[in-house]
Design a protein around this nucleic acid. Structure first.
Lengths: 229, 229
DNA sequence: CTTAAAACATGACCATTATCAGTTTTAAGT
DNA sequence: ACTTAAAACTGATAATGGTCATGTTTTAAG
């Protein structure tokens, strides 16, 4: 449970900032940054932005998890990415000039700061390190998505689930993986029923432990083997 | 058939340049660009770069088509993107510092210019318009790939083929679509046999015309309906 | 503490699509 | 023009995984 006090975050003491795009900022830049951002508390399942709308700024996660997803023709979500503390999201469309092609919602209660479009673009113009960090980030994600596409096209659901669990483990770190079955299915790209059956298999094979909603990997080796490489 | 003379291209008269990243270049910049680039003729199926290696520069297509692909665990290709004249490819990994996550090979005989890494990065530093163009391009592709992932996860092969044919039509423009069945299958993300059967269906439904290797869309409306949206 | 709704789970069924094993056609090189 | 290899195609078969129907558990709200 997040304290209400968490609502007010200062960039100088923000532990998430260290491994964020703003991790290299010096003292005076942090003060400026802190001045420009607004911080908000979000409940579970609150939208940050929605596919089709135009961006007004970027979101910087201080605490919590956010799913980034698109909807297919039948409205089913496909989760593209799960953002965690320190991640900055929503800048893609600001550069392309297009409306958002993805939506983003909190997966749990979160503290998230907002930096307006103009402020952010100005920072980018004047700060080559930030700029290069963003270019690097865009490029890295582009590579990840190429692999994501290939996995979707060529791996079985079982293999994709193994792969996804390994990614989720990285995202959740010390915490247990905590997603609804539906969200996990939408990340793996399968039907909820299929996902539930496969989780049961993995549990019986002693690859994972299931604690109702939460989930823990107990045999990473096996998962790696199933995921293929 | 490309003339041997096509091998030597000057940026000033390069028709592909107009709608490329360098489209906004002024006269003196074009002269510099021309000085920095090297132009080469490629036969069909020649690699430009290979997954896992490190980039030495970027490739600018003057004429021809190039497939950008990754290989899955069993070595099967998944085509992520097909580049045409005017497209600049291979810059992603230069920014991320990682090795290439994709490979690129010519699909037909092509004239392709090369700009060395240092020259290119220098141009980027000194030219905000180029820089912003690249950021925009990266962002746009990121959006496209989110949709690609969703299509892979949620659409049937039939729907994906329809979708892919519409994309291929844009890429090939006036020319007829000209890909081996295997390449097309690797773009759609399916088995070659399945692709062949579906093409036959589409032909019988008078959606496409097949001229041995080449292929033409005759009913775009139907394709749009099948592709969904 | 109760109750309704959401999430989770399981079974039965079948359509889609991959795989394998071939044959025919096309293209490329000598 | 002839030879050969690669590409295109066809058919049969099987399994993966989606859908629907239904029951159970968990969670959240009053």
């Amino acid at each position: 449970m997040l304290e209400k006090s968490h609502k007010h975050v200062t960039c100088a003491t923000c532990s998430a900032r260290k491994n964020s795009l703003f991790g290299t900022y010096g003292e005076s830049e942090v003060i400026d940054l802190n001045h420009e951002k607004m911080c908000n508390y979000y409940k579970k399942n609150q939208p940050l932005f929605v596919e089709g709308s135009f961006p007004r700024g970027v979101f910087c996660l201080n605490q919590g998890k956010v799913k980034v997803f698109t909807r297919g023709d039948e409205g089913k979500e496909q989760i593209i990415h799960i953002a965690k503390a320190g991640d900055v999201i929503g800048f893609r469309s600001m550069f392309s000039g297009e409306p958002y092609k993805v939506s983003a919602s909190t997966l749990e209660e979160s503290n998230i700061c907002f930096i307006g479009k103009d402020d952010f673009l100005l920072m980018m113009e004047s700060n080559p390190i930030l700029r290069n960090g963003i270019i690097k980030e865009l490029s890295k994600e582009l590579g990840d998505r190429a692999q994501f596409i290939t996995n979707m096209a060529q791996k079985s659901v079982r293999e994709r689930l193994a792969f996804s669990l390994l990614i989720l483990e990285e995202i959740y770190g010390e915490e247990e993986i905590n997603l609804t079955r539906e969200d996990m299915a939408n990340f793996v790209g399968t039907a909820t029923e299929t996902l539930i059956r496969l989780l049961k298999d993995f549990k019986e094979d002693e690859i994972i432990e299931i604690h109702t909603r939460k989930l823990q990997i107990v045999n990473r080796e096996k998962l790696l083997r199933i995921a293929g490489r």
